[in-house]
Amino acid sequence: MTSEHGRSLDEMAADLTDRRRPFARATVVRAQPPTSARAGDQALVMADGEMFGFVGGQCAVESVRQSAVDSIAAGEGVLLRVLPEGAETYPETSGARVAVNPCLSGGALEIFIQPVVPTPIIQVVGDKPIALAIVDQARLLGWAVSRVDPEAAGVWEFTEPHGVVASIIASHGGDEAAAIRTALDHHVPFVGLVASVRRGATVLDAMDLSVTDRACVHTPVGLDIGARTPPEIALSVLAAVVAAIRRDGLAGTGAPEDAPAVVEPRREVDPICGMTVMVSADTIEYDDESGSHWFCCKGCRDTFVARSAGGLQAAQ
């Protein structure tokens, strides 16, 4: 199956993954005639709703686009059941979502949508046992890890400048302030300093941080679990990072510089069938004296135009 510029969807997915661009893969797992899709048909959906590939007609496409965008934002897969109006519905359960489309010509679809979100990156400054334990445990979580030599803490550059969710300084001395400053300058949302309460406060007080920057720095870093050994301390540190990710939805340091800004897609209601559609450059639109209107398909637009023309003639 091909996508943009003749590339296969697999090639496109590999490229997006390499460039750390979030997307979702939608796969038809069941199709009931007379739907045009077949089991195994696939599409890739970007975070802004742009789609490549084929998973059915326009009515099914709108449901897939919206579910995929929501799936990417939540970081969770979903089984989408697309049903024509009047069909026997399925109960909505965890991990499943039902879309009843009035304009669907018949048949039903089940489509599994799997988000592919860039792996979080954690930077660890230090070469002592606690730093090494943090590195080992972060890898067990499936994160990408970059360990920084504490001797270069003041001049180091991120080997992966995009997607860093946390920088942990566990050098136990050295130029910790320079390491913190570098992380803040790269807009890392969670910066942790492994230190005692007194030493951590001393380091931060000497830096004259802004209120915003100070809120990003955590010291002593880690949840209070009574940790004593390096592995236990590493566990408490990573637990604090995970808690921040889940609680605050930490994003990394951003998409690559060549990535277009992701804007939450605009959603409008088709005035004919009542379906919610995502507004993009290729969304069917019709403008009249009452304003702009968007439609799931040409049939709905033509019906709207005909009704508008009929109402205008009656008024005359």
Rank of each mutant, 00 (worst) to 15 (best):
M1A: 15
E4R: 05
E4P: 11
R7F: 06
D10W: 02
E11R: 00
A13F: 00
F23Y: 07
F23I: 08
A24V: 07
V29F: 10
V29W: 07
Q32F: 13
P34H: 10
R38W: 12
A39T: 02
A39I: 00
G40N: 05
V45A: 06
A47W: 07
G49Q: 08
Q58V: 15
Q58E: 15
C59E: 10
C59T: 15
V61A: 13
V61Q: 13
V64Q: 10
Q66D: 12
A74H: 13
G75Q: 06
G75N: 05
V78E: 11
L79M: 11
L80S: 11
P84T: 01
A87N: 02
A87F: 05
E88P: 13
T89M: 12
E92F: 09
V100G: 07
N101W: 11
N101I: 15
C103I: 12
L104W: 04
S105W: 05
A108E: 14
L109F: 04
P118W: 06
P120S: 06
I122R: 03
V125E: 09
A131P: 02
L132A: 13
V135F: 10
V135A: 14
L141R: 11
G142Q: 03
A144F: 11
R147F: 07
R147P: 04
P150G: 04
P150T: 05
A152W: 13
E157K: 01
E157C: 00
H162R: 12
A166M: 04
A166L: 02
E176K: 00
E176M: 01
T182D: 13
L184Q: 07
P189C: 05
F190D: 07
V194Q: 03
S196D: 01
R198P: 04
S210H: 03
H218E: 01
G222I: 00
D224K: 14
T229V: 10
T229K: 07
P230D: 09
P231V: 14
A234P: 01
A244K: 03
G249P: 15
A251Y: 12
G252S: 02
T253R: 02
A255V: 00
D258F: 11
D258S: 11
D258C: 09
D258W: 09
D258H: 11
A259L: 08
V277P: 03
V277G: 03
S292N: 13
S292W: 13
D302Q: 00
V305T: 08
A306Q: 14
A309V: 15
G311S: 14
A314Q: 10
A314E: 12
A315W: 08
Q316T: 15
